[in-house]
């Protein structure tokens, strides 16, 4: 009995040690990007490179980064476009999901299949015509260009539909009998009760579009219109290896998403598994 307990204890300690080792490996790039952005060149570009600051820390990498690229403006571009996309996707998904799952309009299945079908098309494959569309509308290098193609998504509609399918229909029917219009029901009954699903969709959409790369690279031409993800790549230069500076840029780009991932795992998982379970 006692021996058994000891062996369980040993096993569990061993497991935790292995996990600790794995966690150190996986978290190392995170640690190194944050620490490296604060390390002096004497530490980070020395040979051999140090992973611990022996000459103290400095803000100079971050200050230099902010001077080299219009980081503030790019932050604003990233936040503005990502928030606009997120709000718009919640709205368009909620509207379509309501019509599909609660109004159950005629031909809902066909509509649903069409919306799902849009998820099958890789965005990278249709990037040329989309770029030409934006160019022909004279919207290149504009804020609108950053958000326009992403104002609705098949995934968002799919998520809202799967959530609203389980919505208590008695509430809707009761409101209908009281003479409520559908828009009114959507706004004052369905929307408040859909907050968990909307939050999951919002977080998922925010992460996806904050981290977007190819589309902003194509349509934003000047540093003033670029998003932070494109901006930080400009800190890299082929002749001058300056990891402290590039890490500072990388850290600036990931701070919002690191906070979200650390705090909102439950919502993220709900968003992720909307696709995997059924």
């Amino acid at each position: 009995m006692n021996l058994n307990r000891v062996s369980i204890l040993v096993k569990r300690t061993f497991g935790i040690l292995i996990l600790l080792l794995l966690a150190c490996i996986v978290a190392f790039p995170v640690y190194y990007s944050f620490m490296g952005s604060l390390m002096k060149n004497a530490d980070i570009v020395s040979s051999p490179p140090r992973i611990w600051p022996e000459h103290g820390l400095t803000w100079s990498n971050i200050v230099t980064a902010v001077h080299l690229i219009p980081l503030g403006r790019q932050y604003l571009n990233s936040f503005g476009s990502t928030l606009a996309i997120t709000f718009s996707q919640i709205l368009t998904s909620l509207l379509a999901g309501y019509a599909l799952a609660i109004m159950r309009v005629r031909g809902a299945k066909i509509w649903f299949a069409l919306f799902l079908g849009t998820m099958m098309i890789p965005g990278e494959a249709i990037i040329i015509p989309n770029y030409l569309t934006i160019a022909s509308l004279g919207l290149r290098n504009s804020f609108i260009a950053l958000v326009l193609p992403y104002l609705a998504s098949g995934f968002g509609i799919f998520m809202m539909y799967t959530f609203l399918r389980q919505f208590p229909m008695e509430l809707v029917e009761a409101a209908r009998l009281d003479g409520c219009s559908h828009l009114r029901i959507l706004w004052s009954i369905v929307l408040p009760l859909s907050r968990p699903a909307a939050a999951s969709l919002a977080i998922y959409t925010f992460l996806t579009h904050w981290n977007g790369f190819l589309w902003p690279l194509l349509v934003a031409e000047t540093p003033q219109m670029q998003t932070i993800q494109i901006g930080i790549t400009q800190l890299q230069s082929p002749d001058d290896f300056n990891p402290g500076l590039t890490m500072a840029g990388a850290v600036m780009a990931v701070v919002p998403t690191v906070i979200i991932v650390a705090l909102c795992q439950r919502q993220i998982v709900r968003g992720l598994t909307a696709g995997s379970s059924r």
């Binding site: 981290n211 790369f213 993800q229 990931v254 690191v258």
Partner: peptide, 9 residues
């Protein structure tokens, strides 16, 4: 945490 990192970062 790696999930928070964008491709570019």
């Amino acid at each position: 945490l790696p999930f928070a990192y964008s491709v570019s970062a």
